[in-house]
Simulated assay, not measured.
Amino acid sequence: MVPIVTSSQWKGCLAASAVIIGGYVAWKMLKPDSRNVKLLSASELQEAKWQLVGKVKHVWLYPVKSCAPLDLHAALAVKPGLEELTSALRDRSYMVVNDSPKFTMVTGRMCPQMVLIKPSLDENGDLTLSYSGKDPLCITKANRQQGPVKISEVWGDKVEGVDCGDEAAAWLQSVLQRPVRLLHFNEDVNKSTRVPNPPTPVTLPLLQPGDSGIYTDLTGFMLLSTASVEQLREHGENYTALQFRPNFVVDSDDKASCGKLRPHQEDEWRYIKIGETVIFRNVKPCTRCTFVCVDPDTGKKDPNLEPLKTLQRTRMRKPWSEPLFAIMMSLQTRGVVREEDPVYVLY
Score class of each variant (00 low, 15 high):
4 I>D: 03
16 A>Q: 13
18 A>E: 06
23 G>H: 07
30 L>A: 13
33 D>M: 15
34 S>M: 13
37 V>G: 14
40 L>E: 13
45 L>T: 06
46 Q>D: 15
55 K>I: 09
61 L>E: 02
69 P>V: 02
76 L>V: 04
76 L>D: 03
81 G>M: 06
83 E>T: 05
86 T>D: 09
91 D>H: 10
93 S>W: 06
97 V>A: 05
98 N>L: 15
98 N>I: 02
104 T>N: 12
114 M>A: 10
117 I>F: 10
121 L>R: 12
122 D>W: 07
129 L>F: 09
131 Y>S: 09
138 C>G: 09
139 I>G: 02
141 K>I: 01
145 Q>D: 12
146 Q>L: 14
147 G>D: 07
149 V>R: 14
151 I>C: 11
153 E>P: 06
161 G>N: 07
162 V>N: 03
165 G>Y: 02
165 G>L: 08
165 G>F: 09
168 A>S: 11
175 V>W: 01
179 P>G: 01
180 V>H: 05
186 N>V: 11
190 N>G: 06
201 P>W: 10
205 P>N: 10
210 G>V: 11
211 D>F: 08
216 T>Q: 04
218 L>K: 00
219 T>I: 02
219 T>P: 04
219 T>N: 05
219 T>Y: 04
221 F>W: 00
226 T>P: 03
228 S>I: 03
234 E>N: 10
240 T>R: 12
241 A>Y: 03
246 P>T: 00
250 V>N: 04
255 K>T: 13
261 L>P: 01
266 E>Y: 03
274 I>P: 10
279 I>F: 11
283 V>Y: 14
289 C>K: 11
293 C>E: 07
295 D>V: 00
297 D>F: 06
301 K>N: 01
302 D>E: 01
302 D>S: 12
310 T>I: 09
312 Q>M: 14
319 P>V: 02
326 A>H: 05
329 M>H: 06
329 M>P: 02
340 E>P: 02
343 V>K: 02
344 Y>D: 00
346 L>F: 11
